[in-house]
Design a protein around this nucleic acid. Structure first.
Lengths: 252, 252
DNA sequence: CGCAGTTTTGATTCATCTCAATTTGTGTGG
DNA sequence: CCACACAAATTGAGATGAATCAAAACTGCG
């Protein structure tokens, strides 16, 4: 935000000099975290220029050859897995500063689809180059491992949600997670617009879209949130949080 | 298997010379995959000796400082996440050749518990050393990234299972997954012993133990499997597989 | 041999899904 | 710029799969 003036100028600079990590206001959230000035310059050099996507367009599809991971610069994505028999599971929603595409490393093919849920821009990070550089810069190597591991931990959280929570709890956890991530990016943690449909939320949470809608309405009736289509205002964060701990507090 | 004679000798060698990757019959499943002879020797040097665990004992607990990842040499493990409010989600079952503990990289603390479900032995792989070596050996670095990524892909499979499948489908997928993994290790893919309780299966699959038991019984009535407590014999793999695709084959 | 932990099975309840109708919102072309 | 068509969301009523509560049987360990 405070770097807006600077950012606006960059596109005017000749294409050889692209928008760099070292200038990016997401650097504290994203891959360069913890790098020295000099090392960040080296990272700048391998980042392939940004790529813009219109809402609804695919960043990659399951089966595409894997070459790069992507950092979300602006906008909002979903990733989903689609099986032959027609099952569709949304595996995550990604916002600015988050990394996409790490599932592709294992097989050299992307294993899921990534779709822009609004007009978006990503940085392209050629993975072979990133590996080469990270074998030279230990802090980059370690941070890459942390990013991969964080994704595993995040997935465990989703497994917990899907395996043990009821619809209300899932949706409360979902809203609180979004809230926290918006907050971390300098936006209001209590007032935001959903970028995804009820059906996509439902797919992510293992619920049907009608259940998502009903549960939103129910939260609204309880005074926990206010919902108007995609616009959410969280009225009572503590009480929403309290939904996650079973009322009695006992071990079940 | 063909290396059995050699392996039997190793324990008699003085303790300074520990059982090494280069001699391990799991090397094609485990971390050293794809390494040259010489590089494998360097990996041998950093593997901290094996560690034996009695059934029921913890390899690590959530909150323990993260120092190493572990490769299962023999035996069987579960990992689970436990929340303050008493929720317990089994996040995976690990057998020979599989890697444990990668969730700890992100925070430098283990985020789940790992428990031996039978008497087991693991190799200890100090992670800082592994990072150091992998920055020198590019194929090791790449393989480590693949192992991390494979875990992410596996987790997506579980999310799909928990998010979209009914009890029968979950249990069929679970049995087929075990079957495939036993098969890959030279055991019968159709005849094996479960190491975990119905409750642990249920926790992993997001079901109650009674539902797991009932569904086993139901499969048995259908002639798909035979169950006697922990012993499973899969009578009809194709038909079990067919449970995973909805009967009509339509896209839903 | 007995007891604790595990598994099986039954009866009932309940949360979520399914099916269906209606309302609201959004993008497009006349 | 408005109207129309299509997509998304809401809401209701009823069906259903899995959970819950409960009891009995089995297993294996000490």
């Amino acid at each position: 935000m405070h770097a807006n003036a600077k950012q606006k100028v960059i596109p005017l600079i000749p294409p050889g000099l692209k928008l760099a990590c070292s200038q990016c206001n997401l650097r504290e959230l994203c891959l360069p975290l913890g790098l020295s000035e000099g090392d960040m310059g080296r990272l700048d050099n391998l980042i392939g220029g940004g790529r813009k996507l219109k809402r609804g367009h695919h960043l990659y599809r399951a089966g595409d050859p894997f070459e790069s991971i992507f950092a979300v610069k602006t906008g909002f994505f979903k990733t989903d897995v689609l099986t032959e028999d027609g099952r569709d599971q949304v595996t995550g929603f990604q916002m600015a500063g988050e990394i996409l595409g790490m599932d592709g490393i294992s097989t050299e093919l992307h294993t899921c689809n990534a779709v822009a849920l609004e007009d978006s821009e990503v940085c392209l990070i050629p993975f072979a180059d990133l590996e080469a550089l990270s074998s030279e810069i230990r802090s980059l190597q370690h941070h890459l491992h942390k990013v991969l591991s964080r994704e595993i931990v995040r997935d465990h959280g989703v497994m917990m949600l899907l395996g043990t929570m009821r619809a209300e709890e899932r949706l409360a956890a979902f809203l609180l997670n979004l809230s926290q991530r918006f907050g971390a990016r300098g936006y209001s943690p209590a007032d935001f617009n959903l970028r995804m449909t009820r059906e996509e939320i439902g797919s992510y949470l293992g619920l049907k879209l009608e259940t998502v809608s009903r549960t939103f309405s129910h939260f609204q009736d309880e005074g926990l949130i206010s919902v108007q289509q995609k616009h959410i205002r969280i009225m009572n964060i503590p009480r929403l949080k309290s939904l996650l701990a079973p009322a009695d507090g006992r071990i079940r």
